[in-house]
Amino acid sequence: MQRMSQYRYWFAILIFSFPFNLFAQMETDQISLNQLMQFMAKHKEIHATFVESKYIKGIDVPLESSGDLMFMAPSTMVRHTLQPKPEMLKLTGDTMTVERMGKTHSLHINDYPEISLHFEGVRALLAGDAERLNYLYHVDLTGTFLDWKLVLRPLQQDSALKSLNLLGSHDRVNSVEVHLNDGDYSIMQVSRKNTVDD
């Protein structure tokens, strides 16, 4: 009986420690692009808020803006700026629609590669579309499951964009940095809203 209980004890420890063990390993291990993409591909719908600061040479203060972000699988991403000037930018499939001051402009992203490079990286990540990421950018993923950093450098030669850096933890993107070749940059902090999906 004594022996038995000892076995049981070890068995119980083994059972209880296994998931913790596994988790601990994931938290501290290097993350691979494939794993990240599998995480991301589970998203159906994401709602978040953002605060963005733009740092532009010649302008002494950072330019701030804030609003809502939304992603709907497979290909819709909405940036709804509320402050300081309302603006709605919607990327669906190949079409980008900008609504501001009561007017709607619509454009085809393939016609404006420079603009699309700024937004497509984020969307492709959220959609878990590795193929698209590799098509547009040189992809570099570092860090762990808990704290990863995805650096996207455009493959297009003459782009003004130097890199699009996405920082996150697990399946969440926490910040988006846009760096231009001329040194100007912007940092966007993202906080996920709690929805049913979470």
């Binding site: 733009k54 302008i59 330019l63 700026t81 501001r100 700024h118 100007d184 912007s186």
Partner: peptide, 9 residues
């Protein structure tokens, strides 16, 4: 206006 989505551009 520069604080809009395409401000950097």
């Amino acid at each position: 206006e520069l604080s809009s989505a395409s401000g950097l551009l």
